[in-house]
């Protein structure tokens, strides 16, 4: 068990180090459509496209830093938020963060 935790930590730090060290280049294209991603996956917990709290916190107007958001999306939080580090590239995650930062209350 301790061994596994260690491996996980090691892996986490590798992923994390990677995330911080290599911000995606500005001209790389994300492979995902973020609004669709919220409708299929994220919005199930981050209600109303991330605008209000549900099973997960409200993402609109988040006071968290980009690095924090990036790390949470990559590593998740066991039993609360799935880890998406093996699913999305850094470019994808940049696009997700841009979507979160641009969220506005729904009109009407």
């Amino acid at each position: 068990m301790a061994c596994l935790t260690f491996v996980l930590l090691l892996l986490a730090s590798v992923i994390l180090g990677h995330a911080v060290a290599q911000p995606a280049t500005a001209n790389a294209k994300p492979s995902i459509d973020v609004p669709q991603l919220f409708a299929t996956t994220c919005g199930w917990c981050h209600s109303d496209g991330g605008r209000v709290a549900g099973k997960g916190p409200q993402l609109m107007d988040s006071q968290r830093s980009d690095d924090f958001l990036r790390t949470r999306i990559k590593l998740g939080k066991e039993g609360a938020m799935p880890a998406f580090g093996s699913t999305f590239s850094d470019t994808d995650i940049d696009a997700i963060i841009r979507y979160i930062r641009a969220l506005k209350p729904e009109q009407g």
Partner: peptide, 26 residues
């Protein structure tokens, strides 16, 4: 729930977990 149904690209391979197809709020 309030419901905003979103047309999505078919998810045929396991990828980013869920496949809901809408945004909603209790």
């Amino acid at each position: 729930i309030t419901l905003d149904v979103v047309k999505t690209t078919p998810v045929t391979e396991p990828a980013a977990q869920l496949n809901i197809g809408a945004n909603f709020k209790l």
